[in-house]
């Protein structure tokens, strides 16, 4: 497997506050990385930083950021522009924001297709793309405006645009959170299909362990701006090692199993400016012990697997 994107020691600052720290990423072609974490864990800003889309006030830095053979870190914003969208595309939770409200769906698809169609008429291509993502009456939909489509249909249209762009990396940030269960499953199936066809690297951000299990090859678990556990999805889901990952998975399982009382993770996520020293999960951790007050490195525990915790069992 070849690495498409390699990132070493990515960090994001909001003024003096370190919002995200020490994130290493390797994204391989044809592989899906599930990024799990609660709101405030830094999963979205990490991905925005990869595309240089951070909102004002946040700055990112990394020791290395390499896309195929290109050193992205050395590029100016202008030089980076051809990579965004064409090479690396992002799907957001709310598809409405990804469309120009005064342009038709057809205009969007034509724009996405323009780079690749090499003079071929765009319309038949666009119709095929829409039909492929399960949009009925694609010919008519080309004339519609974004507000005339439902959330699920718009998310499909956005996926069709991404197929047109054929990017090497697709980042999807909670793309099904606003959708109903039935539509959610359809969209997930589309993503799986899309990834197989493009053999792109795929990053799927979610807070839902069940969804992550359905789609991920590898998992990255984030908590309070740090990676706390990473490794093959099957291995982590079968035997999570970090206490936070264990808590998340236990909660999800208890809900499915209809336990009498749900396993809770007591307390709450610390604010970025008020993180505890040492292990950031320590105040909520049931198995914290002497030694946890020291900063924890992300340490390898098995091939491809690492945790930011000193516990050995």
């Amino acid at each position: 497997m070849s690495a498409l994107l390699k990132v070493r020691n990515l960090r994001i600052h909001a003024g003096p506050v370190e919002v995200v720290r020490q994130v290493d990423l390797v994204l391989n072609a044809g592989e899906t990385l599930g990024v799990i974490g609660e709101s405030g864990s830094g999963k979205t800003v990490t991905c925005l930083a990869l595309l240089r889309l951070l909102p004002d006030g946040l700055t990112a830095g990394a020791d290395a950021m390499v896309w195929r053979d290109a050193d992205l870190g050395s590029l100016s914003d202008r030089e980076f522009r051809p990579y965004r969208g064409r090479q690396m595309a992002m799907v957001f939770q709310d598809p409405v924001g990804s469309f120009n409200p005064v342009k038709t769906i057809g205009w969007h698809l034509r724009t996405a297709l323009d780079r690749r169609r090499a003079g071929a008429p765009w319309r038949p291509l666009a119709v095929t793309l829409l039909a492929d993502v399960g949009i009925p009456h694609p010919d008519a939909v080309l004339e519609r405006y974004p507000h005339q489509l439902s959330g699920g249909m718009l998310q499909r249209a956005l996926i069709a645009m991404i197929v047109a762009l054929e990017p090497g990396l697709i980042i999807a940030d909670e793309p099904t959170t606003n959708l109903d269960n039935i539509v959610e499953q359809q969209i997930l199936a589309l993503f799986r299909d899309l990834q197989e066809r493009l053999s792109a690297a795929f990053v799927f951000i979610t807070h839902d362990i069940g969804i992550a299990a359905q789609i991920s090859d590898r998992l990255l678990v984030m908590y309070a701006g740090e990676v706390v556990e990473t490794g093959p999805a099957a291995a982590i889901l079968a035997a999570p090692r970090h206490p936070y990952t264990r808590g998340l998975i236990a909660t999800a399982r208890a809900l499915t199993a209809r336990a009498e009382t749900l396993a809770e993770i007591p307390g709450q996520l610390p604010l970025p400016g008020a993180r505890p020293t040492g292990c950031v999960f320590r105040p909520r951790c049931a198995v914290a012990r002497p030694g946890c007050e020291a900063p924890q490195p992300l340490r390898a525990i098995a091939p491809g697997r690492a945790i930011r915790c000193l516990l050995d069992d």
Partner: peptide, 18 residues
């Protein structure tokens, strides 16, 4: 039935635990 079907959802990827 369709709604409930999403609960016992499509096989997790490559035998990932549900």
């Amino acid at each position: 039935r369709a709604l409930i079907g999403t609960l016992h959802s499509p096989a997790a990827k490559q035998g990932n635990a549900p």
